[in-house]
Nucleic acid binder design. Structure first.
Lengths: 190, 190
DNA sequence: GGAGGCGATGTCACTTGGTGTCATCAAGAT
DNA sequence: ATCTTGATGACACCAAGTGACATCGCCTCC
């Protein structure tokens, strides 16, 4: 038998979510999280660069999925359509985790520090999508704005999705937000 | 004569910018900033809720100006045009502070914590603009997306503006970003 | 003009996030 | 059997941030 119980990182993540849910983010110390996971504070910081990060390890997966969708977009699609192609795999992944996403969103909503972290993750995501667009030959400025627009659409739809009960609504909500963005930016009167 | 030197907050802000510029954000302690301003750490935290905030007290002014522009927009303008009306007073204000903006931007660019703070300030700004739109009768969803789009345009243009030498270019750069966004979201092929 | 309240600042002790460094010890390699 | 490796613990330490109380010019009121 191994010297330590397996999946230290997973245990830390579970313990953290539980404690944040039970008593709030601020009222929970890293030492408490580590203790519940059967580890020490020092080990927590070996897995997560700071206390916030324990809630955001999934963002890498989100980025991976989105870029996968982007890569699968047809060669002749417009920049925004390429970005929007990333929404398919993303919607699929989240649909299966509605309950978890809601708890997590509730914790984040109650704490500005965590919102900051979420925003910079989205910013990094937009940067990665932009890079993928540039790689496909899209001009830098169009790439930034398309990527940002896509991420904003995702973020708005996500907020709606966690506020209602149907896990399957995510894809539709994203389409609605995208349509709304298109409608709103359609030039008519300046 | 008064018991204390005047403008404690201003002295703290100046000292902070100087020290961040000289030796970096991380390498500067709050105690150092306070000492250079002739105050104590405790007083620093009476003026600023945390170390980052000393760089962001101007964001309230930005929001005020933007909302002023929004209020001045014609009643029949489209949502995005209303948001874009905020760019006028904002461009005017920044144009006179190009040097300061560059130094500050350089400090922020070198530090993820500060980028997080900047992003949440922009998010709050978007929220305020959204509220102003809703006040004018714009539907909630259109309001969120217009406000977010406008703030993104500002952010992208700002990044370009601080990277080049002409202080007067800000208004033009914002118009270009806005045009690019419109072009990119114009539906053609889906 | 003296008494007292007010407000900005200082002092000090304390908690917690985060880090550097070295020790520990099972598992696998040689 | 010994060596090496890698995950963890132990411990000391620094800096951000906070609560509680002290200080003392200035202003007001009688």
């Amino acid at each position: 038998m191994s010297r330590w119980k397996p999946d230290a990182q997973g245990r830390l993540m579970s313990a953290a979510i539980e404690l944040f849910d039970e008593q709030g983010y601020d009222a929970t110390t890293v030492a408490e999280i580590a203790e519940r996971a059967g580890l020490t504070k020092r080990t927590f910081f070996r897995y997560f660069s700071d206390k916030r990060e324990v809630l955001f390890s999934g963002s890498h997966e989100l980025q991976r999925l989105w870029l996968e969708g982007v890569a699968a977009a047809p060669a002749d699609a417009t920049p925004l359509a390429i970005v929007a192609a990333g929404l398919d795999p993303v919607a699929e992944m989240f649909t299966e985790r509605h309950d978890f996403a809601r708890i997590r969103a509730q914790i984040i909503e109650a704490n500005p520090e965590l919102q900051e972290r979420e925003l910079i993750k989205l910013q990094k995501l937009a940067g990665a999508i932009k890079a993928a667009l540039v790689e496909r030959g899209v001009a830098a400025n169009a790439a930034i704005l398309s990527a940002q627009a896509g991420v904003t659409v995702f973020h708005v739809a996500f907020a709606h999705w966690v506020e209602q009960d149907d896990p399957d609504a995510f894809r539709r909500l994203m389409d609605e937000s995208l349509a709304e963005l298109r409608s709103v930016t359609a030039a008519s009167a300046a």
